[in-house]
Computed example of a mutant assay.
Amino acid sequence: MNEWRKSSRSTAQNACVEVAFVPRAVAVRDSKNTSGPTLAFPVRSWAAFVKR
């Protein structure tokens, strides 16, 4: 089971994205639709994204 996380700066309205660290990837989903689709990014791609 993945542990989904969202920013501590997000509002109580769940208007943000959540991330989960899975083997060799980072999964991303919409916090308003937690049973909806997810995107998965390779760890290196995610690291380059958050570095910007």
Rank of each mutant, 00 (worst) to 15 (best):
M1A: 12
M1I: 03
N2W: 03
R5K: 12
K6H: 12
K6L: 05
K6V: 07
S7P: 13
S7R: 07
S7C: 12
S8F: 11
S8P: 03
R9T: 09
R9M: 14
R9D: 04
S10L: 12
S10I: 14
T11N: 15
A12H: 14
A12E: 05
Q13E: 15
N14G: 10
N14R: 14
N14A: 13
A15T: 14
A15V: 13
C16G: 13
C16H: 13
V17S: 05
E18S: 08
V19W: 03
V19I: 15
V19K: 06
V19P: 01
V19C: 09
A20C: 08
A20G: 13
A20E: 05
F21Y: 14
F21V: 04
R24G: 01
R24C: 08
A25P: 03
A25Q: 12
V26A: 08
A27K: 09
A27R: 15
A27M: 11
V28P: 03
S31P: 04
S31A: 14
S31D: 14
N33L: 04
N33W: 11
T34V: 07
S35G: 02
S35D: 11
G36Q: 07
G36P: 12
P37D: 06
P37Q: 12
T38M: 10
T38V: 12
L39H: 01
L39F: 15
A40N: 09
A40R: 13
A40C: 11
F41S: 01
P42Y: 00
P42W: 01
P42C: 02
V43S: 07
R44Y: 00
S45T: 13
S45F: 02
S45K: 01
W46I: 05
A47M: 06
A47Q: 14
A47N: 02
A48Y: 03
A48M: 04
F49G: 04
F49A: 01
V50T: 11
K51F: 00
K51T: 10
K51G: 10
K51W: 00
K51V: 03
R52G: 02
R52S: 14
R52K: 08
